[in-house]
Simulated assay, not measured.
Amino acid sequence: MKAVILAGGLGTRIAEESDYKPKPMVEVGGRPLLWHIMKSYAHHGIKEFVICLGYKGYVIKEFFFNYYRHTADLSIDLRTGAHEVLNSQSEDWKVTLIDTGADTMTGGRLKRAAPYLGSETFCLTYGDGLSDVDITAEIAFHRKHGRLATVAAVQPPGRFGVLNLASDGGVTSFEEKPSDEIGWINGGFFVVEPSAIDYVSGDEMPWEQDPLKNLARDGKLAAFTHHGFWQPCDTLRDKRHLESLWESGKAPWATWIR
């Protein structure tokens, strides 16, 4: 099975980083978000990736083109340029990098990637969110329910606490906003049948708009509820939070090192 990763957006809300690199290349623990996502899929046995490039896609191309040597011990003859790879810790992944256009929407990027996907079920996600979603269980759920697409439904953590006020102006209690008040949202980890791509009309179509709405209308969209960790990296605040989790040695999404 292949995993498609949408990695072409601008990332305007984290411009401090994305002015110089694509958002999926923002680093957590010295590694790009994209690498963390791929490690998660590889942990579930999915090691073939189709990455949809757009904004500053050359940065992602250069990262993977040089990845084998950057993770290796090398012997280099500086006079001739001859070199020998002595030892490499590179992952056993196959990565296909597709330029899907600077202004193409998410659905359009998926449609452009279709020729590289074949006729088998595939996974789909965004390049800017980390989670410990059980991808193996989601694939099994998808196959059991027989829909054209399955989305991991998540409940984002409440960002603001709640004050309970008394009539005299005092505060009777304070509590964190529970996540279940927000409801279920698109968590960005999909399992998809190739025919679902027919719901995308062209480059201008966001996957999250008419395609998902029409799949739901036609009874072709299932929801796999995920109650664990889920965190997008949209802002510097999000990045710092993910960094602190990584530095603690207890990053919830890093299932491959548990």
Score class of each variant (00 low, 15 high):
residue 58 Y to I: 08
residue 188 G to H: 07
residue 231 Q to T: 04
residue 27 E to W: 02
residue 20 Y to D: 09
residue 144 K to E: 15
residue 75 S to V: 11
residue 171 V to R: 09
residue 23 K to Q: 08
residue 102 A to H: 07
residue 202 G to S: 13
residue 116 Y to W: 10
residue 60 I to S: 00
residue 182 I to M: 15
residue 91 E to W: 06
residue 238 D to S: 10
residue 163 L to M: 14
residue 132 D to K: 05
residue 29 G to N: 04
residue 81 G to Y: 10
residue 230 W to Y: 15
residue 175 E to D: 07
residue 170 G to Q: 12
residue 94 K to W: 00
residue 248 S to T: 09
residue 138 E to W: 01
residue 249 G to K: 09
residue 128 D to A: 04
residue 98 I to F: 04
residue 127 G to L: 04
residue 201 S to R: 14
residue 61 K to Q: 15
residue 254 A to R: 11
residue 247 E to Q: 15
residue 256 W to Q: 09
residue 226 H to N: 07
residue 162 V to A: 10
residue 77 D to A: 07
residue 149 A to N: 10
residue 227 H to W: 13
residue 150 T to V: 06
residue 178 P to A: 08
residue 164 N to Y: 14
residue 28 V to G: 03
residue 167 S to H: 09
residue 57 G to E: 02
residue 52 C to Q: 03
residue 174 F to V: 12
residue 219 G to C: 07
residue 90 S to E: 03
residue 107 G to H: 08
residue 12 T to H: 11
residue 113 A to G: 03
residue 246 W to R: 13
residue 119 S to C: 12
residue 16 E to W: 04
residue 251 A to D: 12
residue 12 T to E: 11
residue 248 S to I: 10
residue 2 K to S: 00
residue 87 N to C: 08
residue 119 S to E: 15
residue 255 T to R: 14
residue 177 K to M: 13
residue 97 L to Y: 02
residue 43 H to W: 13
residue 105 M to C: 12
residue 81 G to N: 05
residue 256 W to S: 06
residue 142 H to I: 05
residue 168 D to H: 12
residue 223 A to M: 14
residue 106 T to Y: 06
residue 53 L to P: 03
residue 95 V to A: 00
residue 216 A to W: 03
residue 4 V to R: 03
residue 198 D to M: 11
residue 139 I to Q: 09
residue 23 K to M: 06
residue 236 L to H: 14
residue 130 L to K: 03
residue 132 D to R: 06
residue 69 R to K: 14
residue 81 G to F: 07
residue 16 E to L: 07
residue 56 K to C: 08
residue 6 L to K: 05
residue 205 M to V: 09
residue 248 S to A: 15
residue 153 A to L: 13
residue 113 A to V: 01
residue 160 F to A: 09
residue 77 D to S: 10
residue 94 K to C: 00
residue 60 I to W: 00
residue 142 H to F: 11
residue 84 E to N: 11
residue 50 V to Y: 02
residue 224 F to D: 00
residue 95 V to Y: 00
residue 162 V to T: 14
residue 79 R to Q: 11
residue 229 F to R: 11
residue 58 Y to V: 08
residue 245 L to Q: 15
residue 216 A to P: 02
residue 211 P to S: 08
residue 66 N to D: 13
residue 131 S to Y: 07
residue 230 W to V: 11
residue 151 V to Y: 04
residue 213 K to E: 14
residue 75 S to G: 07
residue 79 R to D: 13
residue 94 K to I: 00
residue 97 L to T: 01
residue 169 G to W: 07
residue 179 S to E: 12
residue 31 R to I: 04
residue 88 S to L: 03
